[in-house]
Design a protein around this nucleic acid. Structure first.
Length: 645
RNA sequence: GGCGGUGUAGCUCAGUGGUAGAGCAUGCGGCUCAUAACCGCAGUGUCCCCGGUUCAAAUCCGGGCACCGCUACCA
């Protein structure tokens, strides 16, 4: 592959960004980053679709110009992409002259060549839905959605799409890679078994003026297709910069959601064909993230805000989850439960812990420097490890080409497990004790090397955390961004470079918080604790059960009453390494100012909850006797965050 | 209604004409360097149902059921 031009759909600027937008864009970013890792020149395009009725109306409502409305809204996407670590090379807005002018030229040209004609028709128009219905489609004189319709006689401009039907069918049949996955290809071919109609491409300005004016008829603006879809070529200099255009077109991949399949696999290729341009090489339709079986969308009211997920668990963790938990092309279910399982298993337990254990050993026994491997000491275990890691490199590359990122990531995590096995088997801590320094250096060097390669393979998915890890491994700045040839060869780490354990890369998400919460209430529900094994006498818990509680001291930094609640206080506490907000039902016994500065004891791993609209991330301990309540404090002087047992 | 897809361990899924697999979750054991993490062992399945082809089918064929997608709701 000599270059890789990848696009996302351009998002409707008036829409609120949601997980669907974020997913498509993250996926495109991951693919773009992988191709850069492979050394392939990449052009990654995204942007916004800014014309049309909704923007027009929103602007009118807000009392601003439509352009002003777009300018206000577009930043929501731009900021989200920044936050999610998206590395697009270009961001196109359909209101930019570089786009609108090209659209007009294309339309003028097609009009001249007879690909566009005017026609008059009569139909039933629903104002609220902004579309026409045929007589047959009406239900009891209303639209199928039950909206009122009115009979309109109107003329509009049409694109002779029907002419290109046979060409399209032939193209799809002779290019198996054109529409992916295969199911979507079948769907398109099924759609094309019926005669294709022509495509209405205009709207009378009288009805909706916010759009690109047709160059051959000033009473009309261009309707969505010849506006939005053209972004894929206007952005790379079609009719403006022939060299750049030739460099990138045809696009290697249009990434889309399955909801806009037909526009991309039928309308767009026929449009290109009419223009005398080649279709894109691949149109890939991915599935949807579902929430409990329902599509996540604004209208369903079950939107998971990607920003919130990123805030809570980190952008990288979100990116990893989205890539690892969806088989590309199929739908997947998005739940916090699945997120936590995936995160803990792969990132916290396997990868994060591996990095932590290896780097701590290096700090302790190798003076915080990458040890030199002793070639004489490299035996079967080392060879097996090398082979496993090299296998992951090969598999990741193959899975990438096959658009099976989830499988590729599984292979990489497999290499991480192999490395954990290697460390266990070689027991460097024992080598340290018995003073086998040379062997110890060899073992740790190999573990570090495995981490170097694995972190490189995961870098496109988790650029932030993997960069941190790679620096911790002692890689120089110009090595932080990985390149495939460096991942293919063993021995990239230079002995003597400083290596140190970073702060926890992927802190574990504690999933036992619910059980702990029940038991934490102590006397209130003694039955809850003995739920499991059944063996302990009623009312007692094992030491193991107790050890699930993470109790720590905390200093109260702020305290305030919660509005609308007479017993609740909102506290901000210092837990040593982080600040937390707690909600506590102690307002009857304590004034806010009584608490500030005191050192209390909190359950640090309690499931977060929202109480009267205020987020609570833990609970403080207090003794209660009748109406009197006393917060547990510590007698001596200990720093915030000290474990309590 | 037509077309396409899916149905495999508690969960998510891989597999494919030849004695059923992975990860997670679960249980037991080991280790103690590490984020109570890691490593080892263990188990469970009418591979949706019925019939057929075959020495042999979860895998091929026919029929059925369930769910999903696209499309049409028309005599």
């Amino acid at each position: 592959m000599d270059r890789f031009y990848i696009t996302t759909p351009i998002y409707y600027v008036n829409d609120k960004p949601h997980i669907g937008h974020a997913y498509t864009t993250i996926l495109a970013d991951v693919l773009a980053r992988y191709h850069r890792l492979l050394g392939v020149p990449v052009h990654f395009l995204t942007g916004t679709d800014e014309h049309g009725q909704k923007v027009w109306e929103a602007a009118r409502k807000a009392g601003v110009s439509p352009q002003e409305q777009c300018d206000r809204m577009v930043v929501r996407f731009q900021r989200l992409w920044e936050r999610l670590g998206i590395t697009h090379d270009d961001f196109i807005r359909t209101t930019e002259p570089r786009h609108t002018e090209v659209v007009q030229e294309i339309l003028a040209d097609l009009h001249e060549r007879g690909e566009i004609y005017r026609d008059e028709y009569e139909g039933w128009y629903s104002v609220s839905e902004e579309r026409f219905y045929t007589e047959k489609e009406l239900v009891d004189g209303r639209s199928p959605e039950g909206k009122p319709v009115e009979k309109i006689r109107e003329s509009n401009w049409f694109f002779r799409m029907s002419r290109h039907q046979q060409w399209l069918v032939d193209w799809i049949e002779s290019h198996p890679e054109f529409i992916q996955p295969e199911q979507r290809r079948n769907e398109t071919l099924g759609f094309l078994r019926q005669p294709l109609g022509d495509l209405c491409i205009s709207r009378p300005k009288a009805r909706m003026p916010w759009g690109i004016e047709l160059p051959f008829d000033r009473d009309y603006v261009c309707y969505v297709w010849f506006d939005a879809l053209v972004n894929y070529i206007s952005a790379i200099g079609y009719r403006r910069d022939e060299e750049t255009f030739r460099r990138w077109w045809p696009a290697d991949m249009h990434l889309i959601g399955k909801d806009i399949l037909t526009t991309h696999t039928v309308y767009w290729p026929t449009m290109l064909h009419a223009m005398g341009l080649e279709p894109p090489r691949t149109i890939f339709a991915h599935g949807w993230w579902l929430s409990g079986g329902a599509k996540m969308s604004k209208s369903e009211g079950n939107v998971t805000d990607p920003m919130e997920m990123a805030d809570r668990h980190g952008v990288d963790a979100l990116r990893y989850y989205l890539m690892a938990d969806m088989t590309l092309g199929q739908d997947a279910v998005f739940t916090e439960e699945a997120f936590a399982l995936r995160y803990n298993a792969d990132l916290a337990n396997d990868l994060g812990n591996l990095a932590s254990r290896v780097l701590r050993l290096v700090e302790r026994h190798c003076d915080g420097r990458v040890p030199a491997p002793d070639d004489a000491g490299s035996g079967a275990a080392e060879a097996a490890l090398r082979e496993a890691v090299a296998g992951a490199v090969v598999e990741m590359e193959q899975r990438l080409q096959a658009m099976q990122l989830d499988r590729g990531l599984a292979a990489v995590i497999g290499a991480v497990r192999e490395t954990n096995r290697y460390v266990d088997q070689c027991a460097p801590w024992s080598l340290a004790r018995s003073g086998e320094t040379a062997r110890l250096g060899t073992v740790l060097y190999h573990a570090l090397e495995a981490l170097r390669i694995v972190s490189g393979l995961l870098h496109p998915v988790m650029p932030g955390r993997m960069a941190e890890l790679r620096r911790a491994l002692g890689l120089a700045e110009d090595e932080v961004e990985p390149h495939l040839d460096r991942l293919r060869t063993w021995g990239g780490l230079e002995a003597g470079r400083p290596a140190a354990a970073p702060p926890s890369l992927f802190p574990r998400i504690d999933r036992r918080r619910t059980a702990a919460a029940g038991a934490a209430r102590g006397t209130a529900k003694p039955a809850g604790a003995a739920k499991k094994g059944g063996k302990p006498a009623a009312g007692t818990i094992s030491f193991r059960d107790f050890s699930r509680f993470v109790l720590r001291t905390a200093r109260v930094l702020e305290a305030a009453r919660v509005e609308g609640a007479d017993r609740l206080l909102r506290l901000v506490v210092d837990l040593g390494d982080e600040r937390r907000q707690l909600v506590a039902g102690i307002a009857a016994a304590y004034a806010p100012e009584d608490l500030v500065g005191r050192t209390i004891v909190v359950v640090a791993n309690l499931e977060p909850a929202t109480i009267r609209g205020v987020r609570s991330e833990g609970m403080l301990l207090a003794a209660q006797h009748g109406d009197t309540l006393s917060v547990i404090t510590v007698a001596g002087d200990v720093p915030p965050g000290t474990p309590v047992s």
